[in-house]
């Protein structure tokens, strides 16, 4: 078991190292003749006006919150799904009740128009 995670760890290290090595190689062999115009921010050929790190719609945050809740729910369901084959029918019903409670929450925010992109 621990060997599996050791393998994954090695894989992660190689997975970072190979792309990084390619970037370093590209950096080594590429020409370096920079000038201010070349290095300017693109933005459709126009000069950038003001700070580029600007505020955004709060709607993105709402979807982030809804996603977080559902993500946690799905993580709960994975052990349930794995164990399902060995369990009696009432276990399935419990899982379905678990899902239905969350569907009720989804229906509530749907009715409240929180899922609309204003």
């Amino acid at each position: 078991m621990q060997n599996e995670w050791l393998y994954i760890g090695l894989f992660l290290i190689v997975g970072v190292a190979l792309p990084a090595a390619a970037l370093v190689l590209a950096w080594l062999i590429s020409p370096k003749k920079s000038n201010p115009i070349k290095d300017s921010t693109y933005e459709c050929g126009m000069e950038t006006v003001g700070e580029s790190w600007v505020q955004f719609k709060a709607q993105y945050y709402i979807f982030g919150l809804v996603f977080l809740i559902f993500d946690v729910e799905m993580v709960f369901l994975f052990p349930w799904a794995v164990a399902l084959g060995k369990l009696p029918l009432f276990a399935v019903v419990e899982g379905i009740i678990f899902i239905l409670i969350l569907v009720a929450g989804l229906a509530y925010i749907w009715r409240k128009d929180a899922l609309e992109w204003v």
């Binding site: 390619a22 190689l25 590209a26 950096w27 062999i29 590429s30 020409p31 370096k32 003749k33 920079s34 201010p36 070349k38 290095d39 300017s40 921010t41 693109y42 580029s52």
Partner: peptide, 12 residues
């Protein structure tokens, strides 16, 4: 071509 392209890091 991608490898020998100039390495541009925009300002900011």
């Amino acid at each position: 071509k991608l490898f020998i392209k100039e390495n541009i890091t925009p300002v900011g």
